[in-house]
């Protein structure tokens, strides 16, 4: 009886009793979801264009943020550091295309996956060699990002606290997604990218350069990694522990589909909000700490009904 009460009654009573706290939980879930979506977006871009699951996406987040902060700490003005970091991500994209993608073209996907695992270790080593292994504080104010928070009174005695950096993260994520959507739909390169995603052979036959497209998507993914690194870094700090957070994008990808940009966003929000609500209101029933696996459970349930994810392409194979 207590169990039924804990599942079906108590959580909703808590929500009704403290609506300000519920709003706070939803907001925190929304912000986490946005950040998960940003990480997932990096995966989607590369998977869409090359069918490669980029295991190195997490370390790219760390590497980009570390480069930005590292350059600034070495005395480079912040704007120049930002531009140079973008340039570094561009060089990385070109190098990945030239030394990983090109030699391994037409190899089974698992080979490319292994190559990105190798890339992960290379970037870990390079990052530690150049910038050291110590965590660094994100240069939030120097980048012009807001700090501080706003307290919004809610109800009689309630209060919702909105961190300005979280609001900025949400805005930046929305801008990035919109820009990427426009880029894919309205530009020539975007259309070429979609063509490559649909069929490599057909794209090649109409003169689309696979090398160019791959370099562009890896660069775009690098820029997304930079934005993600700045936002996560501002919430805690820039350390190699951030790399692991990228794994949180896996259930997002399962939910949203590996090839869908809107799917990454919607999947991110479902996972972000779902895990927060689950952890806060139903977590105590299971001793807490359920958020680390709850997202995977949600994703597994989705897999049963939509193996291709919410927005993924439906796989139809003729036999």
């Amino acid at each position: 009886m207590d169990l039924l009460n804990g599942i079906f009654v108590a959580p909703f009573v808590q929500m009704a009793d403290a609506p300000d706290f519920l709003v706070q939980v939803l907001w925190e879930g929304f912000v986490s979801g946005i950040l998960y979506a940003l990480i997932a977006l990096g995966f989607v871009l590369i998977f869409k264009a090359s069918g490669v699951f980029n295991f190195a996406q997490g370390i790219m987040v760390v590497f980009a943020a570390l480069t930005l902060v590292g350059l600034y700490q070495k005395g480079v003005p912040v704007i120049l550091a930002l531009i140079l970091t973008m340039a570094v991500m561009g060089i990385l994209a070109l190098a990945v295309e030239r030394f990983i993608m090109r030699p391994l073209v037409n190899q089974p996907h698992v080979i490319l996956l292994m190559a990105t695992i190798g890339l992960t270790y290379f970037l870990v080593g390079l990052g530690e060699f150049v910038f050291g292994g110590e965590p660094k504080q994100m240069i939030t104010t120097e980048l012009g990002l807001p700090t501080g928070s706003t307290e919004i009174p809610f109800g009689a005695q309630g209060m919702v606290i909105l961190q300005h950096i979280d609001i900025a993260a949400a805005i930046i994520a929305i801008v990035m997604v919109t820009a990427l959507a426009l880029f894919f739909n309205r530009t020539r390169i975007g259309r070429a990218l979609r063509a490559v995603a649909d069929d490599h052979q057909a794209a090649l036959s109409v003169g689309i350069s696979l090398h160019q497209i791959w370099a562009i998507v890896w660069f775009a993914s690098g820029l997304v990694a930079l934005a993600t690194g700045v936002m996560w870094g501002a919430r805690s700090d820039v350390s190699f522990a951030l790399e692991i957070i990228a794994l949180r994008a896996l259930p997002v990808l399962i939910l949203g589909g590996f090839t869908s940009v809107p799917g990454a966003i919607v999947g991110g929000l479902i996972v972000g909000i779902g895990e927060k609500i689950g952890e806060i209101y139903w977590g105590p029933l299971l001793g807490g700490g359920i958020e680390s696996w709850l997202a995977y459970m949600i994703a597994l349930v989705f897999l049963l009904f939509r193996p291709q994810g919410l927005f993924g392409e439906r796989i139809i194979e003729r036999v």
Binding site: E28, R235, S236, R248, E275, I280, G283
Partner: peptide
């Protein structure tokens, strides 16, 4: 694995 993702604990 969640060291830098503690918002639930603090909620």
């Amino acid at each position: 694995k969640e060291m830098q993702n503690q918002s639930s604990q603090w909620l």
